[in-house]
Nucleic acid binder design. Structure first.
Lengths: 255, 255
DNA sequence: GCCTAGGTCCCGTGA
DNA sequence: TCACGGGGCCTAGGC
């Protein structure tokens, strides 16, 4: 399966430049393991002094520069930027330019351990489960997950202040605003919910606001009480039991 | 500089496993270009079907799985997780386990284009400029950037509701809360500022709230007016002129 | 451990 | 294009 892939060990700057051109032209993924320094200017600015890093250019022309530690790239450029490969003061210079916002990453490369152009054939589907959207679908189809007698009115409703996750009525006919959180509800979540509820309460003081989440932070709970909102414990895991995704593939739980 | 680095082209699963052990033992960075499928279970769940990807394990035991497009890894594990390399149903299985929260990534690898263990010697300093912190330092040393006569009281003050960027007094002695934003101030920023101001206004209705940012969104401006808060235009670029970083290295501007 | 806030956040969605 | 909210966000800093 090497097909159009090429790997060079300890290439010269010229060989690496040629490989980069080859990868960019053929929409292959390029990797360089190299000694480099990096300048970035754009929304912010940064300077990375000389050291050995991994430089990755993907076929969608995104750029990642990774150090030997850390989840995050030290410098990067999102997909779609333009690359210029040149030579400058004895170094191989790779410039990645993003149009909007205007941002420039300059990589000065002195020597290389490895350079590779890889053809990665990848059509595999990716599916994510246990998201906030899953919780929403579960509640819409099983309103009792919020409380007995709860009935959603519309799936979502746009208000001047933003969006409501779920709007409904309780068994007594009171308007209920439900805000879903996949993880612990914090103060921001309460404030968000309160914006909606406050707006609706103006014409109707009986409007209820319920935050449905696995748990709630201490300070969020204090705020919740002060604003006369309610908390309903609801986890993505419980919701997943009420929601069929894909071809009904059951979700495995952590063991 | 190859030193302890090793590169294998089209290795067998057994050779790749050996290389992974070697990299993990010697705290080298490991790269695999391989056909794989990936399961993730933890805070959420995901399934990635078979396809060719780049798998990176860093010396701090972080894991990145990159497809041939996109800035973000499709699956990952932050630093510090535990790796188990084994063989399962004809595949090389790499399992990365995170303790807290408990999360598991399973990578099933069928065949490999490339496997490398790289020793990346990297001691280069990284410095970032034009951050919110830079704006703060600039304002603390040059309070007139907010307005004539402004005087910071303390650098930062913790309130029951959170943190204040800068607290000070104006030329008439009124308390002033300043919230800094590096980019356009949105409604969330206004709400955040209002939380502090509202708290302080209870004992002192003359308290002012100023949001200092390059610009402000339309809806944030409306909210600002309604809450009797103020906007002061201030850019990170202007602030950078009043702040010396490192050895006084001047910041280049975009040209 | 929890909680808060920032980020060159990225990314999708909708106006 | 801007604006807004979600994310397995990650990461740093307090407590």
């Amino acid at each position: 399966m090497l097909s159009r892939s090429k790997v060079l060990i300890k290439p010269s700057q010229e060989q690496a430049a040629e490989l980069l051109h080859y990868a960019l032209q053929n929409q292959l993924l390029a990797i360089l393991a190299c000694n480099c320094k990096v300048d970035y200017h754009g929304r912010a600015s940064s300077r990375l002094e000389w050291g050995e890093r991994l430089v990755i250019i993907k076929r969608d022309r995104s750029l990642l520069i990774h150090r030997n530690t850390g989840y995050e790239p030290v410098n990067w450029q999102p997909p779609g930027c333009l690359f210029h490969v040149s030579f400058s003061e004895g170094n191989l210079l790779v410039r990645a330019v993003r149009k909007s916002p205007h941002e420039v990453v300059d990589i000065f490369i002195s020597d290389l351990q490895l350079a590779a152009a890889l053809e990665l054939s990848d059509y595999g589907a990716f599916a994510m489960y246990l998201t906030e959207e899953d919780m929403k679908q579960a509640v819409l189809k099983n309103p009792f997950l919020i409380e007995e007698g709860f009935q959603p009115i519309t799936e979502e409703r746009s208000l001047p202040t933003g969006f409501v996750d779920i709007l409904g009525r309780d068994s007594k006919g009171n308007l209920v605003v439900v805000e879903l959180k996949r993880e612990s509800a914090d103060r921001e979540a309460i404030i968000q919910l309160y914006r909606y509820v406050e707006h609706l309460r103006k014409g109707n003081p009986s409007v209820r606001g319920i935050i449905a989440a696995p748990k709630i932070t201490k300070s969020a709970h204090i705020l919740l009480k002060a604003l006369k909102l309610e908390f309903k414990q609801l986890t993505p895991e419980v919701c997943s039991k009420y929601v069929k995704r894909g071809e009904g593939e059951p979700l495995k739980s952590l063991t």
